[in-house]
Design a binder for these strands. Structure first.
Length: 261
DNA sequence: CGTATTTGACCCGCGC
DNA sequence: GCGCGGGTCAAATACG
């Protein structure tokens, strides 16, 4: 059986995100014979801890060769049938916020050498969390850098970038269409030689120039990680390990960056 | 006043 | 080639 707390913790996510063990499939690392990744999406419903955010599905690290599956999984977010609180009431919300006619016409010249965003598929991880707030506190600091309307969805998708120095992690946050009480958070990891690595420190950041200021505080504090993400967890050691692991990984990424340039 | 968010413009890949 | 959709940029704005 799945042990969601143990096997699909943030530490595991990050482990796979950062490529610690690339051969490990997330959904059978406990030697269960999982026939399909979609089995993941059928976690047994567990007792809800208060009415906290309930994370009930995690999705795995997928190698680049499997990114199509990842995309499929992300875009066709199934809902576990055991959830009693599923409501199909689709409220029509501010999709028309994006249809304002008054246009400020100011020209802006973008960098000609933008990185290709679709040519290269980074590992992605989708989390589904039952939550009323869109942007979940996962213990790290993120800067929102964009928001887009999602086709066939009344809910926008928000784009966040990790503000840690040399942390090449981005995430997208959107609300599930099937169940509007579920937030889908998709993490995306840049390679170590990330194109963002050099600029997070403030080089190419427009009017903002102090990204580096937050970098050190991110991992030093014990935050609400276990409360927010491990909804059924009552011990804190897991979250602590997660932080240590992440710290190691980020620092190893940083040192790699230094070595490479 | 410094920092975070908003939001329209822009870029790019892809399908037709 | 063109339009669409997704992702990103960055000036303007909000916020503490």
């Amino acid at each position: 059986m799945f042990d969601i707390e143990k096997d699909y913790s943030l530490s595991f996510l990050l482990e796979t995100m950062f490529g610690v063990d690339e051969h490990q499939d997330c959904y059978n690392n406990d030697n269960t014979t999982t026939s399909s990744i979609f089995d993941l999406l059928m976690f047994p419903s567990q007792q809800q801890h208060q009415h906290q955010q309930q994370r009930f599905i995690t999705c795995s690290s997928l190698p680049e060769s499997s990114s199509i599956l990842s995309d499929h999984l992300i875009n066709n977010v199934p809902v576990t049938p055991n959830l009693s609180s599923i409501s199909s009431s689709s409220t029509e919300l501010a999709a028309d916020d994006y249809q304002e006619d008054h246009q400020h016409k100011y020209k802006k010249q973008l960098k000609p050498n933008k990185k290709n965003q679709k040519g290269k598929k980074e590992p992605r991880f989708a989390f589904m969390t039952k939550s009323e707030v869109d942007h979940l506190d996962d213990g790290f600091r993120w800067r929102k850098y964009g928001q887009k309307a999602v086709k066939n969805s009344p809910f926008p998708r928000s784009y966040y970038r990790c503000t840690t120095l040399s942390c090449g992690v981005k995430k997208r946050v959107e609300r599930s269409i099937q169940d509007t009480s579920i937030v889908v958070t998709t993490y995306e990891v840049q390679p170590v030689t990330t194109t963002y690595g050099g600029r997070v420190g403030g080089g190419d950041s427009g009017g903002r120039s102090h990204y580096g200021d937050y970098s050190s505080s991110l991992f030093s504090t014990n935050n609400s990680l276990q409360e927010k993400w491990f909804w059924n967890s009552s011990n804190s050691s897991l979250a602590k390990d997660d932080h240590e692991l992440l710290q190691d990984m980020v620092s190893s990424r940083m040192s790699s960056d230094i070595i490479e340039e």
